[in-house]
Amino acid sequence: MLLHLIKRDVLLRYRGAYFGLLWIFLNPLIMLAIFTFVFSQIFQARWPIQTSDIPFALNLFCGLIAFNIFGETVSRAPVAIRSYPNYVKKIIFPVEILPLVPLGSSLIHGLFSTAILVGALAWTGNLHISLLLFPFLLLPLIMIAIALTWFLAAWGVFIKDMSQIVPVFVQMLMFLSPVFYPAQAVPEALRSFYTLNPLSSVIEALRAAIAGVAIDWSSWSVALVLGFLAFFLGYTFFNHSRDEFADYL
């Protein structure tokens, strides 16, 4: 059923468009092209503290893939349930899977972006075997995303403002996480905050994986534990408040 819903969600976004599902592929491709042009050609930017010869745009793209999975999911979370009042009120439906729909659909989008990333890495001759860890490394990020989605989806039912507040925070988080820069470039004094941010550990681990260098497993594990904790908290909270959804929608 969840798969059905995700399929619907993805199909729906492209239904009626001339290029249809091609957009899933075209969107990240265009984005990567722009990044390459702007950062490599115009800014002539170099990745600070370079450990490999992966171009700037690809380092950036890698972080962005991970962040987008998180950001897209969380931004849509407040309306994940609110926008399906019929499913809550008019038909018999397992409501707890509704928040998983945005995650599923952003994972699918992430998958296509990753395919492009892999293609680009191969093109630039940077293919490493550790790339296979990519999906596994995403695990803490996915857990956190689900946890937040459960929280936000439940709150979103009761408080309409959530759908306004959340995107602002997501935007903020994008700049506070090492998406456009490596975590090592952060001043020493603030670095400890960054290690606490599970997004940061995951993105750094992903970058290490595509570069084929050693992954910082300790901070990744911390992120995983945080992820599990958040997951259970989120689920408990969601189950606690779900009985009241129908009353408030």
Partner: peptide, 27 residues
């Protein structure tokens, strides 16, 4: 239980009748 609290509550306007019927069945 088959609930007809509102007819076609689970239907999505963008999908065809056939798709909606199958989806409703899954539900």
């Amino acid at each position: 239980v088959s609930a007809m609290l509102e007819l076609g509550a689970g239907f999505h306007p963008e999908f065809t009748g056939r798709e909606n019927v199958f989806f409703q069945g899954t539900l």
